[in-house]
Amino acid sequence: MSNVLQLLTRSDYLLRETVLGLKRGGWMNWAAVSTVTVLLFLFGMSVQASWQIDRILAQFGNQLEVSVYLDTGIQAADLQPTVAALPEVIAVTPVSKEEAWSNLLQEMGSSEIRGATEQLNGNPLVDELKVKVKGAAEVPTLAGKLKALPGVDAVQYVDEAVQRISQLNQGLSWLSLGMITVLSGTAIAVINTTIRLIVMARRREIEVMQLVGATTTWIYLPFILQGLMLGVVGALVAWGLITGVQEFLASLLQQQSEFIQFLTSASPLSWQQQVTLPLALLGLGCSVGLLGSLFAVRRFAVK
C-alpha cells in the first residue's frame, strides 16, 4: 500500500521517463500503434457486425409468423382460443376466407368480387390464423403442435432464411475470433520488439540505475507504462476509425431503399452496447500493450 502511495507521489518521474522512452522509440512507436489499431479496428467492426446481424435476426424473430390454414368449413374464430392458449404464442389474428379472398382479388386488380366468385363456383380459400411466435427457436415446435390440432390443414412458416443468417453469423464470429487471436499475437510481438529496442537504447542508463540502487520495479515500470500507452493510443485511434466508418455507412444508408434502411436502423444500439465497445477496445488494447512490454522487460529484469 505504501508502495502504491510512493509511486503516486513520484508519478512525475514515471511520466517523464515514459514520455522520454517513447521519444527514443521513434518510428517503432508507429509500427506498434498501427498494429494495435488494425487489430482493434477489425475487432470492433466484427463485434458491431455481429450485433447488427443479431438485431436483424431479432426483428425477424419478433415478426415471425406462422400461417395456419384450416380445413374447409372450420371457422377461424372457433380455433382462435385454443391456439392462443399455447405457451409459444404471443398473438393470434384470425383471417376469414372472405377477408382473404377480397384482399387477394384486390391485389390481383380485380374489382368484381362477385363475378370472380361465381366463375370459380364460390370462394376457393379457407379460413386462416396468423400466429405470432415468441422466438425464432420456438417456431418448429409450435408448428408441429399446430399441425396436430384438429381442423388444421396446413402450417407454413419461413425459418430457413433466418437460420441461414444465424449460421452465417456464427461462422463470422469464429472467423473473426481466429483473426483477432492471430493479430493479438502480432501486436504483442511488435510491442515487445519496440519496448526491447527502447530498453537497449537506454542500457547505459539502466546500468547506472542498477548501480545506484534503483529497484527493478522502479527501473522497468516506465517501460511497462510505455507498452500500456501504445495499447491505449491504438485503442483510441481504432475507436475513432470505427465511429467514422459507422457515420459513413449511416450516410450511405440514407440513400438506400427503404427495406435496407428498415433492416439496419430499426433498433439503434442499446446504451450498454455503446459503452461496451469502447471499453472492450480499451481493455484489449491495454492487455496487448501490457503483455508485450512485460515479455520485453522480463528477460532483462530476471537476472
Binding site: 513520484r10 547505459r204 547506472v208 540505475m209 545506484v212 540502487g213 529497484t215
Partner: peptide, 24 residues
C-alpha cells in the same frame, strides 16, 4: 565515469536521486 551522454550535468546527478525515488 559512466555518465549518460544525452543528459546534462545536473540531470546526470539528479538521475541518481530520481532512480532512488527521492521527491522533486
Amino acid at each position: 565515469y559512466k555518465l549518460i551522454p544525452r543528459r546534462t550535468v545536473l540531470e546526470n546527478v539528479a538521475f541518481v536521486l530520481w532512480a532512488q525515488g527521492f521527491t522533486r
